[in-house]
C-alpha cells in the first residue's frame, strides 16, 4: 500500500516540477505537457525517440553501477563513451570495409577502447594510489583533444573538409526497423545488457566477489579475495559498458563520428545509476525515465518558443527531484531512537 502511495507521490512531484519549469519558461502548461507527451510517448516518433535516447543511458548507467558497487567511483563515463566511439570508427577505417562484415566489429572495438581507458584509471589507483575520481575526470579531458586530433587527422573523412569521419559502411551498421525513425537494434543489446548484468552481479562468483569487495573490503581481504584485482576488473567492465554506449550510438544512430558526438550521456549516467540504486533493473527504469524526459524536451524545444536550454533545465530538475525522493526513501524515521534500539 505504502509503495503505491510513494510511486504516485513521486510521479506527482515530477509532474509538479515539470509544470513549474514550464511556468518559469513561460510556456503554456497544457501546450507544453502535450508537446512533451507527444515527443516522448504518445506517437510512434515519440516512443522510438525515447527508446533511442534511453539506450546509451542504460549502458553508461550499468557501467557506473558496476564500478561503484566495487567501490570505484568512476566518473569518466564521458571520456570512455567518446573513446569507445573513436575506437569503433578507427576499427572500421583500419580494417577496411571488407573486414567489417558486421557491426559486432566496431562495437567490440568500442568496448575495448572504453575498457582500456577505465582500466588504466583502475590500475593507477591500485598500483599508485591515484583515486579514480580524480583520474577518470582528468582522462575525460585527455580524450577530447585526442578526438579533435583524430577527426582532423587519421580518421578525417576522405573529402577532408569537416572534422568528422566518413560514414560507416552499411554492413557495419546496426539494423533499423523503420526508415522513418531512429529506432535501431541497439535497444535489444541494452535490454540484454541489463539482464546479463543482473545475472552477473547476483548469480555469478565474480559478481559476488565484486559486491563483497565494494561493501566489505576488509571482509574480502580476510577471506582471500584480492580486492585490487576485482577493482581493476570492475573498472574495465565499467569502461567497456561506457564504450559500448559509444559504439552502439555510432553504429545504430549517427553512423559517423563528428564533434557533436558527445551529448553528455557519460555524465548523465551517474544520476541514472544512483537513481537506479546501482541495481541493473533500477538502472534500466531510471534510464528510461531520463530518456523519456530528454526525448520529450527535445520536442518541446523544437516546437515551443523556448530554445534548447529547457532540455538541460528539465534534466537538472529531474535529477533534483530524484535525489530528493532518494532521501525521502532512506531517511530514518524519528530521531535518535532508531540508533539506540
Amino acid at each position: 500500500m505504502r509503495v503505491h502511495v510513494r510511486i504516485l507521490a513521486s510521479f506527482a512531484l515530477l509532474i509538479g516540477a515539470l509544470i513549474l519549469t514550464l511556468l518559469v519558461f513561460r510556456v503554456p502548461i497544457g501546450e507544453g505537457l502535450r508537446l512533451i507527451g507527444q515527443g516522448a510517448i504518445f506517437t510512434e516518433a515519440g516512443w522510438t525517440r525515447s527508446a533511442v535516447r534511453s539506450t546509451p543511458l542504460v549502458f553508461v548507467g550499468l557501467g557506473m553501477a558496476v564500478a561503484w558497487r566495487a567501490g570505484m567511483y568512476n566518473i569518466g563515463g564521458e571520456g570512455q563513451y567518446v573513446l569507445g566511439g573513436l575506437a569503433g570508427a578507427a576499427s572500421v577505417s583500419a580494417l577496411g570495409t571488407a573486414a567489417t562484415w558486421s557491426p559486432a566489429v566496431p562495437i567490440l572495438a568500442a568496448c575495448a577502447g572504453g575498457g582500456l581507458l577505465a582500466g588504466l584509471a583502475g590500475v593507477l589507483q591500485v598500483w599508485r594510489g591515484i583515486p579514480v575520481v580524480i583520474s577518470t575526470i582528468l582522462l575525460n579531458f585527455m580524450v577530447l583533444p585526442l578526438q579533435e586530433w583524430l577527426l582532423q587527422g587519421p580518421l578525417q573523412e576522405a573529402k577532408g573538409q569537416i572534422p568528422q569521419t566518413d560514414r560507416l559502411p552499411d554492413s557495419a551498421m546496426l539494423a533499423r526497423f523503420d526508415p522513418r525513425f531512429d529506432l535501431h537494434a541497439g535497444v535489444f543489446i541494452a535490454v540484454a545488457a541489463v539482464l546479463a548484468m543482473a545475472v552477473f552481479l547476483y548469480r555469478t562468483p565474480a559478481g559476488f566477489r565484486l559486491r563483497v569487495v565494494g561493501l566489505g573490503p576488509r571482509a574480502a581481504r580476510a577471506h582471500g579475495i584480492s580486492g585490487d584485482r576485482v577493482r581493476v576488473w570492475a573498472m574495465v567492465l565499467s569502461g567497456s559498458l561506457c564504450g559500448l554506449a559509444g559504439g552502439v550510438d555510432l553504429t545504430g544512430l549517427t553512423g559517423y563520428l563528428g564533434t557533436g558526438f558527445d551529448q553528455g550521456w557519460g555524465f548523465m549516467g551517474i544520476p541514472v545509476a544512483l537513481l537506479g540504486a546501482l541495481d541493473p533493473v533500477g538502472v534500466f527504469l531510471a534510464a528510461v525515465y531520463f530518456g523519456v524526459l530528454v526525448a520529450g524536451c527535445e520536442n518541446l524545444a523544437r516546437f515551443a518558443d523556448v530554445g534548447s536550454p529547457i532540455v538541460y533545465v528539465v534534466q537538472a530538475v529531474a535529477v533534483l527531484v530524484a535525489v530528493g525522493l532518494q532521501h525521502w526513501r532512506f531517511a530514518p524515521k524519528g530521531r535518535a531512537e532508531v540508533e539506540l534500539g
Binding site: 559476488f208 561493501l215 576488509r218 571482509a219 581481504r221
Partner: peptide, 25 residues
Amino acid sequence: QTDGLVLEMSIAENILLGQSLREWT
C-alpha cells in the same frame, strides 16, 4: 563487523563468503 561479515549482505551470502565458490556454481 568489518572483517568477519559484510553487514549489508544477507546471512546466506555471508555464509557463502569464504566457501569454495566453485562447489556452489
